[in-house]
Write a protein that binds this DNA or RNA. Sequence first.
RNA 1: GAGGGCGUAGCUCAGUAGGUUAGAGCGACAGUUUGUGGAUCUGUAGGUCGUGGGUUCGAGACCCAUCGUUCUCCCCA
Length: 455
Amino acid sequence: MSKPSLPQGTRDFNAATVQKRQYIFQTIKSVFELYGFQALETPAMENLETLMGKYGEEGDKLIFKILNNGLDLPQKKQQTLEGVEKLLAGKSSLALTERALRYDLTIPFARYVAMHHGALNFPFKRYQIQPVWRADRPQKGRYREFYQCDADVVGSDSLLNEVDLMSVYLNVFANLKLPVEVKMNNRKILLGLAQFCGGEEKLIDLTIAIDKLDKIGWEKVQEELNTKGFSDAQQKIIQQYLNITGSNDEKIAQLKKLLGDNESVLKGIEELNYVLQYQLSSGMSKQLVADFTLARGLNYYTGLIFEVKALDTDMGSIGGGGRYNDLTSLFGVPNIPGVGISFGVDRIYDVMEEKNLFPPSIEQTTQILFFNLGEQEAQAAYEQMTLLRNKKIACEIYPEKSKFDKQFKYAEKKGIPNVIIIGTEELAKKECNLKNINTGIQTTIPFSELVNYKF
RNA sequence: GAGGGCGUAGCUCAGUAGGUUAGAGCGACAGUUUGUGGAUCUGUAGGUCGUGGGUUCGAGACCCAUCGUUCUCCCCA
């Protein structure tokens, strides 16, 4: 027997952790519902074809694939061997893996919409809170199994959806008392920059390099741009673009000056401005920051993109999203525009733990422990306990007759605030001794009055 | 995919320059106390030092491999 262990990047959650996580889930869920989103759940696994090719080359490698059953059947031997050959060549093989664990919630959602678009009531607003899996190498804030909480609207082009989703972000983090900044950019602006600097086909190279700016600095970014074949003149424009600073309005003014004669950039600015102005009127705009260096890895985004960063911590982004104008066409159903946001609960948890932001009140446990002092006594205690349970007071009885010491310690460690002692004396007088563990105060209460006692 | 740190009792760790029977604190258990806990004191249990190989008269320590874990880069939530 080897020591039991967990697969890399996965975790067990104890009672205290579960309660704190539930607090985050509940907060997010209630805000989603407040804004008119409805729940959806999809299976942990999807057909491999549904997922492959949706997350870029890197993403495909990180998909957890599920080995097919029945590979040992003699009549499948040839297929299996061919599959292994493909695998060794670095390709995936349906002969070996037809299914995979979902990598995010957006693609399964697009698959769902494509399957049911005839029956859905558009604009369709759904939220989804489920785990996803990535075969990534674990490190700080990065796990192989983690939860995402997504809210998406499909079937509407209106920027009012973006406004609403930004409001969801700000509302959730205000409720959690977690200070954040929501960075916003527009793929159309990046597209315009690419058109200026070598053409649309360089958009991805460009965004990847730009995205690294705050991590590796301009010089390294410049090196990367060099290797990707950007000319000196183009690099100069990119540098000017990246050097844009100031308030949101100032940044936008500078961008207009730099790239204002590009149609895509102008459109992008207009959209960005729309959302910023709208939020301004609600007084929440301070946390919304235009950041033209924001790129986002997933290339299905087409419009505004967002990323949430917790302030004063080195944790990466704790949420992100954007507009994708044609996601369902990947599944053969064109012309359903959508926009969505996502929360990374596991990282939010880590940041809140780091900053000590969980309210103490969320830790709930049993209210009363009944001592067990023998068969007769326990039976009487059980009767009283049942009455209290019917009143929705959480109680438990120590399952075996033990020394006081042991029963007290049990209550103390579990954080149970009250114990009720019913021994032979109490039994004879039909009363019980209630002791508050924290104050040490002991009260005698007749059985008949216990149900009405205010704990 | 690339690179670094760390694996010694349930937990946190010590273990000096390789040298007999591997230590501490906390926790657990028992007693002090068979109806009132958190304290004190006393005692007990618990480790083939992650695993496999090698160097050596001798390895927890040194070397190699391997597994696990953690962090950084890539990428991402």
